[in-house]
Design a protein around this nucleic acid. Structure first.
Lengths: 228, 228
DNA sequence: CAATACTGTTTCAAGTGTGAAACAATTTTT
DNA sequence: AAAAATTGTTTCACACTTGAAACAGTATTG
C-alpha cells in the first residue's frame, strides 16, 4: 500500500465505485472482480485496483471483491459512515433549491440550516429547514454541529462569506457562486460553476465541427484592433 | 495563432475572463493589461495571453486590451452572442430547481420546456415554463428550437434519456444524474455530480491532517478478508 | 527619437494522470 | 498437484497542463 498523497481524482472515483457496488448489491451480486466491475460500468480495471491499493488490500486473489465488504470499506474511507450537517448560506433560488434537493436525497448529509441577510426571509422555512439571520451563523454552527457549508450567494459577496465561514472553524465548503474562492490550504473548497458549464456547451455549439465531430479550429486571424 | 485543438480548460478560463471583464466594464475601466487582469483576479498573465492567442490577436502591444472589445470578442468566441434554448428533462426537485434558477439568471440561455413522464406533473408550470410529456420531446425540440438539453432524471434512466436526446439531434447536454454517460464523440456532455462533490468533502473531513493541513496518509494496511 | 509598456509566441522543465503490460502472490477449481 | 483466476504492485510510455522565461514586435509616452 502506498502512503503518498491521494489525488482528488482518485477519491472521486471511489465515490463512483461505491455507487456501482451499491447497484450490484441491490441486484444481489455478492462478489465482483475488478475486470467485471470495469466492464459493467465502463471503467478501467487497472485503475480500480490501483485506486483501492492506496487504502489497503480489499480483494481476494483468485476471487475478486466481496461486494458488501468493499461497500463498507469505501463508505468508511469516504467518511460516509458518519453523519454530516450542512448549513446553506444564501436563501435565494440556488440556496433553497439545494436545500430542497439535499433534504430529500437519502444521504448522510442533513441540511440543518439556511442563512440569509434578508429580514423578509429570516424565520421562514424551506421544507423543514429554517432560514436564519446570517449573524447567527456561528451560534448555529456550534448548536447544530454544522461541518459543511454551502455558499450560494451572489459572486460579489462570496469571498467575504467564505472568510466568515472559515473563521468559525468550518473546513469543508461547497461553492455555487460563479467565482473562484481562495482560502488556506487546510480548507477544502469545491466550486460548482453552472455558468461555466453552460458556457462551455455554448462554445461547443458555436464551433465548426469536422466529419469526425472534433472541433476543428478557432476563428480567423488578423483581427486587429484599430488605433483609436 | 495556433489552430490546434482547444482544451476545455482553456475555454473554461475564457468564461472566467469574460466575467472579469464584465466586472471591469461595470466599474468603467476601459483598458486592462494581462498583468493587471491577473493581479486583480488571481490569474496568471502568461496563461491569459496564451489562452487568447488561440483565437486571435485581441490586444494592443504597449497598451493591453480594450475591455469592451475583448468582452465582445470573448462573447462571440463562446457563442454567447446567440440565444440558446434549453429543455430540461425531469421535473423533479433538481429539474424544477434548475428551471427556476436559470429562468431568473440573466443569460442568453432560456429554459423553454420541462419534460417528465409523470402524468400528474404534465401540464403544470414552474415559473413560466410548462411541463410537457416526454413523448413530445422531439416535437418541442423542433418547435422551440431547443439546442441544449439538461438531464435531471434518476441515474437509472439517464443513459436511455441521453440516447433519446441525441437521436433528436441535440448536441450539447448537461447531465445532473449522478452517473457518467457515454455518447459519440461529436456530442458534448457536461456532468455535474453533486453527490461526488459532497462525498469528496466528506472524505476530506474524514482524513487525518498534518500541521500543514495536507492530508497525510490513508488508513492502515493488513485489512484482509478472511476466507469464508 | 529613445525609453517604456505590453502583447504574441516559443521553448522548456516540472508535475500529474492514464492505460497498458508484466508478474509474483494467493486462492479456487479441476 | 496442476491449472486457472484474479489481486496487488511496479514500471513505462504517453499526453496534458502549468508556469516561467525569454524575446521580438508594436504602440505609447516623454
Amino acid at each position: 500500500m502506498k502512503v503518498e498523497k491521494i489525488s482528488e481524482l482518485t477519491t472521486n472515483r471511489l465515490s463512483v465505485y461505491l455507487r456501482c457496488l451499491n447497484e450490484l448489491s441491490a441486484k444481489g451480486i455478492k462478489t465482483v472482480s475488478s475486470d467485471d466491475l470495469a466492464k459493467r460500468f465502463h471503467l478501467n480495471s487497472a485503475q480500480i485496483r490501483k485506486d483501492l491499493a492506496y487504502f489497503g488490500e480489499f480483494g481476494v486473489r483468485g476471487v475478486g471483491y466481496y461486494v458488501d465488504n468493499l461497500r463498507q470499506d469505501l463508505t468508511k474511507i469516504l467518511g460516509l459512515d458518519k453523519p454530516h450537517n450542512v448549513g446553506i448560506i444564501g436563501a435565494g433560488r440556488m440556496g433553497t433549491a439545494l436545500a430542497d434537493y439535499y433534504e430529500y436525497s437519502q444521504t448522510n448529509f442533513s441540511v440543518v440550516a439556511l442563512f440569509d441577510t434578508d429580514k423578509a426571509k429570516v424565520g421562514q422555512k424551506v421544507g423543514n429547514v429554517k432560514i436564519h439571520d446570517i449573524k447567527k451563523f456561528e451560534e448555529l454552527v456550534k448548536k447544530e454541529e454544522i461541518d459543511v457549508a454551502v455558499i450560494a450567494v451572489p459572486a460579489q459577496y462570496a469571498q467575504d462569506i467564505l472568510e466568515m465561514v472559515v473563521k468559525v472553524g468550518i473546513k469543508a465548503i461547497m461553492n455555487f457562486a460563479p467565482i473562484p474562492l481562495k482560502a488556506e490550504e487546510n480548507i477544502k473548497i469545491r466550486t460548482v460553476d453552472l455558468t461555466i458549464s453552460l458556457e462551455s456547451l455554448s462554445y461547443f455549439l458555436a464551433q465548426p465541427t469536422g466529419e469526425n465531430g472534433k472541433i476543428m479550429k478557432p476563428i480567423a486571424k488578423n483581427r486587429r484592433i484599430k488605433k483609436k
